[in-house]
Structures are given as C-alpha cells and as structure tokens.
Amino acid sequence: MKTKFVYLHGFASSPKSAKAQDIGDHFAQIQTNLKIPDLNASDFSHLTITRQLTQVAAEFSNDSASVVLIGSSLGGLTAAHLGEQYLQVQRLVLLAPAFGFLSHWLPKLTDEEVKRWQREKYLMIYHYGEGRSLPLSYDFVKDAAQYQEELLQRPIPTLILHGKHDEVIPIEASRDFARSRPWVELVELEDNHALGNVMEEIWQAIRLFCQLP
C-alpha cells in the first residue's frame, strides 16, 4: 500500500524553514515525495490548531493511503492530534513537539501583555518565516487550550527527537509523554529547540524508523 509523507512546520515558521528544507532535500535524494503544506494558509493572524488539523487532514482523509506525519514543535503537537483522530496515520515523527505549549509559551508574556491581548483581540508576534511581526488573534489561545496531551492514547508507533537543551519546550515535556506510552521512543539530542546542529542524526533516525531506502 502506498504511503504518504507529510511534514508540518512549527509555529510562526514556514515550509522554507531550515528543518523543512533539509528533510525535504533528503526525501528528494531517495526519490520519495514529502508534502510540506504552508500552515500559515496566507492568514497567520487567524491561525488555530483546529485550522491546522482541518487543513492537513484534507491532504489525506479522502484516500486509503497510509500516512506518516513528521511534525516540528507546534507541527509536532498537531501531528500527534491528527494521529489520534485519523486511522490512516500509521507513524509519527515528532521533532521537539510542543506538548504543554500554552503552559511553556504564555508565561514568556507579561500579565499586562496577556490582558492587552484579551482586550484588543490581537497581539504582534514575531514570525520567523516572514521575518517580521504579524498580529495573532487571541482565538489562537482559546482554541489551543482544548488540545490536551492526556487525550493522546492511540498506540501509534511514535519517534520523538528532542534536544536536551531546549529553551522553548523543555525536554521534560517529551519525557513525561513517553513515560506512560510504551509505543513512543524518545531520542534525546545534544541541541536546543532549533535542532540545527543534529540534522544528520535526525535524518538517519527518520530513515530507520520509517524504513526508508
């Protein structure tokens, strides 16, 4: 049976991110198609996890091909929830997945910034893919609050690659997730959230886990 491979980039990132390009190049070298949708969907201001789930599911939900999702950070969290909802998803590769995203990200804002965001409905967020700040609706926070890791209980073969020195999503988040799920393999890497120094290790791990040529 045919397998589809889909890469989901992170929050305020794009299909042109270093990780997406590097992994895409490796897939091209083995002549395997890797789909990399733009989760900004030309409207970062109204991004929600629910919108990402709907957008990505549309890539595979009407055919019978099995799906492998590779997700980075918030894309990893999105991939995990897609795996819970869609039986076509047969494997997950999660790079520094954003488990507990709001609990790690919101405290980086001051109380005043959060209150202003609630009041004014939009907050300027630096978008790495665009290289500039863009407004993000507070609906993003309200929507994200419903996506709890406790809900993720489908035993899908899952490989997590997480940097020990991650300054955005602490490695404890992945350790906690893997601890109670025997179908999850966690590989701890000597790097930070960007994982830019271990791309070759990441590719070899993906290739082995996905049984690629």
Score class of each variant (00 low, 15 high):
2 K>M: 06
3 T>P: 07
3 T>W: 00
7 Y>G: 03
7 Y>V: 15
7 Y>D: 08
9 H>K: 09
13 S>N: 09
13 S>T: 10
16 K>L: 13
19 K>N: 00
19 K>C: 05
20 A>S: 03
20 A>R: 04
22 D>R: 11
24 G>V: 06
27 F>A: 04
28 A>K: 14
28 A>C: 14
29 Q>Y: 03
30 I>E: 15
31 Q>L: 06
31 Q>R: 15
33 N>E: 09
35 K>R: 10
36 I>L: 03
37 P>D: 11
37 P>A: 03
37 P>Q: 05
38 D>P: 11
39 L>P: 01
39 L>G: 06
40 N>S: 05
41 A>V: 09
41 A>E: 13
43 D>F: 05
44 F>M: 00
44 F>R: 04
45 S>C: 13
50 T>I: 12
50 T>L: 07
51 R>E: 12
52 Q>H: 09
53 L>P: 08
54 T>P: 06
54 T>M: 12
55 Q>M: 14
57 A>S: 12
57 A>C: 03
57 A>P: 02
60 F>K: 07
62 N>L: 15
62 N>S: 15
65 A>C: 14
66 S>E: 12
68 V>P: 02
68 V>L: 06
69 L>C: 02
72 S>C: 05
73 S>K: 15
74 L>T: 13
77 L>T: 07
79 A>K: 06
82 L>A: 09
82 L>P: 01
83 G>D: 01
85 Q>A: 13
86 Y>G: 03
86 Y>C: 13
88 Q>S: 14
92 L>M: 07
92 L>V: 12
93 V>F: 13
94 L>D: 01
96 A>S: 13
97 P>H: 11
99 F>H: 01
100 G>F: 05
100 G>H: 02
101 F>P: 00
101 F>L: 07
104 H>W: 03
106 L>Q: 01
109 L>P: 04
109 L>R: 04
110 T>G: 09
112 E>F: 14
114 V>P: 02
119 R>D: 15
121 K>I: 10
122 Y>P: 01
124 M>I: 13
125 I>A: 07
126 Y>I: 09
128 Y>C: 06
130 E>H: 12
132 R>S: 04
133 S>L: 02
134 L>P: 09
135 P>V: 06
135 P>M: 09
138 Y>L: 08
138 Y>Q: 12
139 D>T: 10
140 F>N: 08
141 V>D: 01
143 D>R: 00
147 Y>S: 05
147 Y>L: 02
149 E>F: 03
152 L>F: 07
153 Q>R: 10
154 R>Y: 11
155 P>Y: 04
155 P>V: 12
156 I>C: 12
156 I>E: 10
156 I>R: 10
156 I>A: 12
159 L>D: 04
162 H>I: 09
162 H>C: 05
165 H>Y: 10
167 E>W: 00
168 V>Q: 06
170 P>F: 04
170 P>T: 00
176 D>N: 15
178 A>Y: 09
180 S>R: 14
181 R>E: 08
181 R>A: 05
182 P>H: 05
183 W>T: 14
184 V>T: 05
184 V>Q: 05
185 E>Y: 04
186 L>N: 11
187 V>D: 10
189 L>C: 04
191 D>L: 01
192 N>S: 10
193 H>G: 01
194 A>C: 12
197 N>Q: 15
197 N>M: 13
199 M>Q: 15
201 E>V: 04
201 E>L: 13
202 I>L: 06
202 I>T: 08
203 W>H: 01
203 W>T: 08
204 Q>D: 06
204 Q>A: 07
206 I>E: 01
207 R>W: 08
208 L>S: 13
212 L>I: 11
